[in-house]
Design a protein around this nucleic acid. Structure first.
Lengths: 333, 333
DNA sequence: TTGAAAGCGCTAACAG
DNA sequence: CTGTTAGCGCTTTCAA
C-alpha cells in the first residue's frame, strides 16, 4: 500500500505539503494541488486511518450502546442516529450489551482506548455514577427516561412516568378498573426505568384503585414472555381476571394477543391490552394494538446532535417539544 | 492518559517487557508480571488501540455490510454474526448501505484504510468484479444466493432458486394455478438475486403454466408496498385475479394481508399468500403466514467462521447441510 | 507558500 | 528472561 511518503516522492513534494492537502489547509498553490491529486490517483493512495488516529488523537468514530439490535425499538433508533451521523465525517459503531453489565463496561472501555471519540447510550445497565467515570475519556450522551436528568451528563429524555400514567388513565377512562401490569424490570424503585412503575402506581392511586400484586408481572420482555403471562392469567378463576393489561412492549402485547385469541378470549370485550413502542407489527396484528408511541426519530436526532456538539465543544439545546409520547388508539382497548 | 512507557517506568522495567506482558508472550517471570499488573492498575492504564493498530497493521475489527438494519432479516443475521464474533478478540462494525452502490464502495474503502481487517457482505449492491477488487486489501466473505458461487471469493450461499421453485410448486400442489409474484428487484436476469425469478419461472414451466406479466410486481419491499400491490389487484376485474401470491418478504405479505382483510377478502379462500424469511411477525398476523424460512443462524455462524479462517490463514469448509430453506406451512395458503 | 524533523504509543527484531 | 532501538504512517511545530 502506498503511503503519504510515496505520494510526496511521486509528486516531487514534501510529506508536509501532501498532509496539508489532505487536511484542506490553505496556502497550497493550485499547481501542486493538481500534482498531488494525480500522484494519489496513480498510486491508488488511501490514508491509513490508524496512523491518522494515533497522531491526531481522534478516531472520528462514535459508538451507540443498545441492549439488542433485534429489538425494533433499537433498530429504528440506530437507524435515526445513523442518518444524522452520516451528515458528518464520523462513523457509527453499534455495540450490543445483551443486558449485560460487564459487557457494557467493556464497551465503555473503548472510549478509554481511544477507539471511539464519544458514546450515545440508548440502553443503560450500570449505575449512573459508574458510567459518569468514563466521561473523562470522552463525551457520553444518555438516552432514556427523565429520571436520568439526575446525572450531570447530557441527556435526551422522555417522560415515561407521565406516558405510563396517561396510558393507565386512558384505560380507566374507558371503564377498565382492574388492570394488570407487565414490566421488563423488577417492580421496585432501585433501578432507573422504575419511572413507568411510578406512573402506573400514581394513576391507580389518583383513581382510588389499589395495586393488586397478583397482576404485576416482572422481567417480561419477549413475545414468548407475553404468551406465558396470558396463559398464566387464564389459569386464574374467571372472577380474578384483570379487565385490561398494560404491557411494557408491543412484542409482549403481541404474545398475549396470540394466546388469548387461540383460546377464544375476546379482545377487548373480555380483556383489553395496551402495548408500548408503536412498533410496525403493532398495527399488523389480528387485533391492531393500542399502544404508546415513542418519538424515536427525534431521540436519534437530538442525541446525535447533542453528542456532536460536545465533540466540537459547542452548546446545544435539546428541543424538548419533539420528545412527547402519545397514545395510539386502535382496536385492542 | 498513561502510556506503556509510564507503566514501564513505574514498574522499573522496559517497555518491551510490558508489551510482552500485554501480548501474553511466554518467558516473563511471575515477579515482574505482578509488578506490571500493579503498575497498570495504579496508573489506570489502557492500551491505545490506534497505536496497536498502526504498529501491528491489524485493527481486530471486522465489518458487516447490510442494506438496512431495520429489516429484521438483517437484524437477526447481525445478531447471529455478533454472537460468533464475541467468541474471538475481534469487534464487529455494522455498516448500512441503504441499497446505495456508492455507499457500499465507501464501506469497502474502510478495508483499504485498514479500518477493518475483513468484511462479511450480507447484502450486495455492486457487481462482483468491482467487489473482488477490494479483496487485495483483506478477506471478503459473500453471503446470499448460490449464484454468488461464480465469484472466486469465499461464499456462504443458500439455494434461493430451489426454495422459490419449491414454494411455487407448493402453491400449485395446493391447487393454486394462477400465481402472482412480487420481487424486490427487477424481473430480468442482469442482477444477482434473479435466482428467485428463475425458480418462479421454472416451476410454472414445469407445470405448463405461462407467466402472466400483469401479475408480476417489481421493486416491492415494504409493508406499504405490499398494501399497494393488494390494492392494485383489487382494481382488476374479479375474473383476472390471481388465486395466490408469492411475495419476496414477510413484510410485503403482511401489507397484503392487511389490505385484503380490510376489504373482506378471505385468505386463503379467495386469495392465498406465501411470504419469505419467517420473520417473528409472520406468525403473529391475523392470518398466520405460510412462509419460506431462511437459516439465519447458520448463515451467521458459517460466514463468521469462514472470515475468521481467512484472517488466520486457515482452511474452513462450510457446512452446507445447515443452509437449507424450508417452507413453514401456516394459515395463509 | 513550502520543507525538515520530531514524535503520537506501540511492537518486534536483535542483542545480550 | 530482559532491554535497546528502529520504525508503523501521519500531523505539526519551527524555520525558511
Amino acid at each position: 500500500m502506498a503511503t503519504i511518503k510515496d505520494v510526496a516522492k511521486h509528486a516531487g513534494l514534501s510529506v508536509t505539503t501532501v498532509s496539508r492537502y489532505l487536511n484542506h489547509h490553505p496556502y497550497i498553490s493550485e499547481e501542486k494541488k493538481e500534482k498531488i491529486k494525480v500522484a494519489m490517483k496513480e498510486l491508488d493512495y488511501t490514508p491509513n486511518s490508524a496512523a491518522t488516529q494515533l497522531r491526531s488523537n481522534r478516531s472520528f468514530t462514535i459508538g451507540v450502546i443498545v441492549s439488542r439490535i433485534t429489538n425494533p425499538y433499537f433498530a429504528y433508533l440506530i437507524d435515526a442516529i445513523e442518518k444524522e451521523v452520516k451528515k458528518t465525517n464520523y462513523h457509527l459503531l453499534i455495540m450490543q450489551t445483551y443486558d449485560d453489565k460487564s459487557e457494557e463496561l467493556r464497551l465503555l472501555d473503548m472510549l478509554k482506548q481511544k477507539h471511539i471519540d464519544g458514546i450515545i447510550m440508548a440502553s443503560i445497565e450500570n449505575e449512573l455514577n459508574v458510567i459518569e467515570q468514563y466521561n473523562q475519556y470522552g463525551p457520553i450522551v444518555l438516552t432514556g427516561d427523565k429520571s436520568l436528568n439526575d446525572s450531570y451528563l447530557p441527556v435526551v429524555s422522555t417522560d415515561q412516568e407521565k406516558a405510563t400514567y396517561n396510558a393507565i388513565q386512558f384505560l380507566i377512562n374507558k371503564g377498565y378498573h382492574k388492570i394488570a401490569y407487565c414490566t421488563g424490570g423488577a417492580f421496585d424503585n432501585t433501578k432507573h426505568g422504575s419511572s413507568r412503575n411510578k406512573g402506573f402506581i400514581k394513576a391507580l392511586e389518583d383513581n382510588d384503585i389499589s395495586v393488586n400484586m397478583e397482576w404485576v408481572y416482572k422481567n417480561i420482555h419477549t413475545i414468548d414472555d407475553g404468551f406465558n403471562v396470558a396463559k398464566n392469567i387464564m389459569t386464574l378463576p374467571r372472577e380474578s381476571w384483570p379487565r385490561a393489561i398494560f404491557s411494557g412492549s408491543d412484542e409482549v402485547a403481541a404474545g398475549m394477543v396470540k394466546c388469548f385469541l387461540e383460546n377464544d378470549v375476546d379482545i377487548p370485550k373480555e380483556i383489553a391490552i395496551i402495548g408500548y413502542d408503536n412498533q410496525p407489527l403493532s398495527e399488523m396484528l389480528s387485533i391492531p394494538l393500542t399502544t404508546v408511541s415513542q418519538p424515536i426519530e427525534a431521540i436519534g436526532f437530538e442525541s446525535t446532535n447533542l453528542l456532536m456538539s460536545s465533540l466540537n465543544e459547542e452548546k446545544y439545546v435539546v428541543n424538548q417539544e419533539t420528545l412527547e409520547l402519545n397514545i395510539i388508539d386502535r382496536k385492542s382497548t
